[in-house]
């Protein structure tokens, strides 16, 4: 079983594909669940506090906007933990819902420079592409040990 980070880190479809192939998907919903279930924290909606952007300083400098650093406080540890990654490229801002383009760029960059097996695919636009898309992901996941 390999820990596979999916990008966008909010994608439930990718997470499902990874889990079906017997691997562990690293997705942001799990990180948010940890936050929301932390006893003693009361900072809705995500239970993130001003301490989180400070934790994000490990991945981005202080002059990077706080929203990027706060998001990196969630995504950074997932990148560190990942042994493989699937990155979906697509121009639409509605692909995934991380919300911030700068965070997306930094996340993709850190995954690419980590030197782990990485599959980069374009977002499918029709049925035939979607089938090839799933097939490539399956092949990639089967090849992971």
């Amino acid at each position: 079983m390999v820990k596979v980070m999916v990008y966008p880190p909010t994608s439930m479809i990718l997470a499902d594909l990874v889990e079906r192939m017997g691997h562990e998907a690293l997705v942001v919903s799990k990180e948010v669940r940890k936050k929301v279930n932390t006893i003693g924290l009361d900072s809705p909606p995500l239970n993130m506090t001003p301490e989180d952007p400070k934790k994000g300083l490990k991945y981005a400098a202080v002059d990077v906007p706080s929203g990027v650093r706060g998001r990196m406080a969630l995504f950074g540890p997932m990148i560190e933990e990942a042994n493989a990654a699937i990155v979906i490229k697509g121009n639409s801002c509605t692909l995934g819902c991380t919300g911030c383009a700068r965070t997306n760029e930094l996340t993709r960059f850190l995954l690419r420079t980590k030197r782990i097996p990485i599959l980069e695919l374009d977002y499918p636009t029709d049925d035939a592409e979607a089938k090839r898309f799933v097939h490539k992901i399956r092949q990639f996941l089967e090849g992971l040990k």
Binding site: L46, M48, D52, G67, R69, G70, C100
Partner: peptide
């Protein structure tokens, strides 16, 4: 807005 919840300031806005 963009980023307020990830910056940990949404609670302050609400307050």
């Amino acid at each position: 807005s963009c980023g307020s919840e990830y910056s940990g300031v949404q609670t302050e806005l609400q307050k």
